[in-house]
Design a protein around this nucleic acid. Sequence first.
DNA 1: ATTAGGG
DNA 2: CCCTAAT
Length: 608
Amino acid sequence: METVVGVEGSDEGKCEESGVEKSSSSLSSPKQIADPVVYKLVRVEGDGRLVPATDDEVMEVEEFLVDEKIELPVVTDAGNVECISNEESSSGKSHKESSEGLSHSENTEPDAKLSARLEEIVPSSDLSLDDSHINESARIGECSKPPDGPIESGSPASVICNSSKPDFYTLKGEICLDNLSIRELHGLFRATFGRETTVKDKLWLKRRIAMGLTNSCDVSTTTFTILDNKLVNKGTDNSFQNADGMLTEGSDGEAKNLGYETSPTSHSSQMENHQIVLGKRLGNLSVELDCGSDDLQMEHRGAKRVRKPTKRYIEELSEVESRDYTPKVISSAKTTGQGQTSPKYCIRPPGNAPLNERTIVTRLDSLGGSGVQVPFVSRVRRSRPRKNIMALMKFDSSGMGVAAKLVQEALSVRSSPPESEHADKVLKVRSASEQIQPLFAAEPEKDKRRSIMSTIELGKNLGLKQTDSSEDNSDDGIATVPTAKGGMRRKHHRAWTLVEVIKLVEGVSKCGTGRWSEIKRLSFASYSYRTSVDLKDKWRNLLKASFAQTPPDDGINSRKHASVPIPAAILLKVRELAEMHAQVPPNLGPGKLPSVSRSVHQTRSGYL
DNA sequence: ATTAGGG
DNA sequence: CCCTAAT
């Protein structure tokens, strides 16, 4: 099995501390910046090979990071709640995810502390819930100062924790993951994250989905019901088991803030306040921190990337394999003990907001053999393997030591513009081996094919690699295809994921409609694809959906496999925002709105 | 460069 | 999503 490991540069134990503070400090101190902590997600295969985390994995985490960072500054009043630092939460999340999915039973956590920390993640709790309906929601719409305070950035929990998605809270809708079949979970997963997953572990799926929808890392281990984007824990599992005080702290804190306890039954009325209490068991987590190892993968942004195998392949492989082998977690980790807690990500001066998101965060890539600072943004969400397997394998050959070395290298090399070159070389080499054209060049999209390919890849290893030139080459990962006319058209229809929709709604609530570029910067920094135009279009569609009657809903019509319905809560929110901004679609006047709050509950009409 | 809209 | 006009 593989486990995903978060590697962290120095102090393992204290990720938390490193969190926000660090980030801020990092800014100030050059040194840290230069020597940022490298945080990478790596999967360790049974045989000890390191495989870079898939983009998605990384992405998810990053996403949070980015958002948080961006939003952090926003904190307004409520700041009482203590949350975990952004970084932490993000890292924690990732760890959780990976660990759970893959290793959950087996791994033991090497570092209790760490795991504990990870667990600790605080859910972005939302404050505003909606039952208050319109009134509250209306307020929410305003960006600057929500009367309630809490909404949006102002919301206490969200503020600090910063899950960028807090706004959502208001949405209502309940999604119960408990009773879904794996198949359904897969569909939901796809809708939520925009990618497929091969993981068959229901628990893992539920957790991930819950985390995605909730935007928080803390998800209960037993029950998964998401209400208004919040996770409701009906199960008994509520107890917080965090061994660490810290953990509890997080949860407790949250609870306090909310002041509510999630009552199992609260389903109906109380839900408004939803809180989710999530207890997490440390035991399950087997995350390991590794120091310094970083992904390699990146090519520099500017340079043209050589095709990497699609991440999917990697993902698939690793997942499959992981299951087969029971791996051990490798903790290359501790290898580096750099004292410094360098932030994993360096944030560039906040001031750059205007700058592209890209500039905001960079990370050091050590795997490639050289530390390269890569702009965060570049991650493409859809499966793009950042690094090549090959490269990894190569490194692996040297064994664990390699990781350490890499780390060291990375660390040692601080700022290294030149490094990029090295990276290139590495990449090139790899690519060379990979370059072989795929037999199946054309459309690797099918699952079957993928697996086949992957199999081949693994088996032969280097022998064939796919260079699907067509696939995403661009930095943003969006594959574009030249059209006859000369224009570039996107190759894939990137379905909007629930997460994206949520972000969009949040963005609109903050900035209002019309300011798409702003929203893009704020909420979609991590999504390089999705242009402001896309946001606008999507909003238009959401609006339509939200006002569309979803009357009879379904039944027959609903395409089973079609996209997952947008939670009513979201639609409701959309509606509210629409009203606020006077963007009510022509037909339905605001008149209808009033009923909305309640009625919405039942509507499940929208589809992503 | 960004938006609003139509297709 | 794409394309284009309008800003």
